[in-house]
Computed example of a mutant assay.
Amino acid sequence: MAHCEEDSSRYTYEEYKQTADWLLSKTEHRPSVAIVCGSGLGALGELLKDQVAFNYIDIPNFPHSTVPGHAGRLIFGNLNGKPCVCMQGRFHSYEGYPLWKVTFPIRVFRLIGVETLIVTNAAGGLNQDYKVGDLMVILDHINFPGFAGQNPLIGPNEERFGPRFPPMSDAYDKDLRKLALAIGEELGFSEKMREGVYCSLGGPNFETIAECKFLSALGVDAVGMSTVPEVIVARHCGLRVLGMSLITNKAVMDYNTEATANHEEVLQAGKDSAKYLEKLVTLLIQRIELNNNVF
């Protein structure tokens, strides 16, 4: 019975469109690129010129961000001459939101004309070669909650957004990945640039040592509590995706250590290294064509 009640409370296509139309009526910006900022990475939004900003609480149907380090604002503006929209703060299942609500903004972006989604996150480094402050371009992901039946596409499919069974073998755009790595080298960040596999867990607790060892054995390079639901919905509705993880802490893998992961450490590391991500994203957006090509 509860499952039926959850299904009946999902957003309708008309509600997505209501929010999109409301935003378009409040700004003349028509973004082609959307950026989702992870923990401590909201400064990306401040780089936009000619800003028009909305608090999530004021946007019809929008969830509200409750996590420290997530400002809860949607900013329209221009970045290096390209029209963009930036989420300063995302939503998570551990806040109590179902995944169809976590991913609500992505379909709204599609309806306002966005073609490319850039998702960023703060992540723990499982790969022992990674250092705090490294930037990992996401090659692929493992959706662990999906193994337990938690997926934002569960329920009736809305064909106006995408097909019932969308492929995920090409979740992260190959050309955008190459471009991001090339720009990192161009900017002199080669020693910080990585490419690897991201794993999403439910949170909000950080991982146990046994869980970290298990994920490492599966080939996971970085672990976090976000991103994958948005990517799934973005690919479902035809957006190109670039994902980047800022390695903000080393995963604890030794039972004899006194070290523990904590959110304050994540926010501080994000603040310290965000400038590298900001420079990379700014230049990358300049090189994204409006017709979904890069050059």
Rank of each mutant, 00 (worst) to 15 (best):
G238D: 05
K192L: 12
A269E: 02
E264T: 10
C212V: 14
Y97D: 07
G96Y: 15
K275D: 15
I247Q: 02
G38H: 06
I232G: 05
N61T: 05
H29A: 08
K192S: 14
H64M: 13
V233N: 02
F62A: 02
T19G: 01
Y94K: 04
D175H: 12
G81P: 11
E5W: 09
T208L: 11
N143H: 14
G133Q: 04
L187V: 14
T12Q: 08
P166L: 07
L48G: 02
S169D: 13
N293K: 14
P163K: 14
E28R: 08
E6G: 00
P166I: 08
P68R: 06
G155P: 03
G196N: 07
L215W: 09
C84H: 00
D21N: 14
P145W: 08
F144H: 01
A180R: 04
G219S: 14
P105M: 03
C84F: 02
D7E: 14
V119M: 11
F91W: 10
K174F: 15
H70K: 04
M87K: 09
S273P: 00
F54Q: 01
D7T: 12
L44D: 01
P68H: 05
T12D: 03
E230I: 08
Q128N: 06
V228W: 06
S65Y: 13
F147C: 08
G113T: 09
K178C: 12
V197R: 02
I112G: 00
F54M: 03
I112H: 01
Y255F: 15
F91Q: 09
G224A: 14
A261F: 05
D7C: 07
Y11R: 05
V294Q: 08
P156N: 13
N249Y: 10
V228F: 05
G162I: 11
R73E: 12
P229W: 14
L23M: 05
H70N: 04
Q88G: 03
L139F: 04
L187R: 12
Y276P: 00
V137H: 03
E289C: 12
S93F: 15
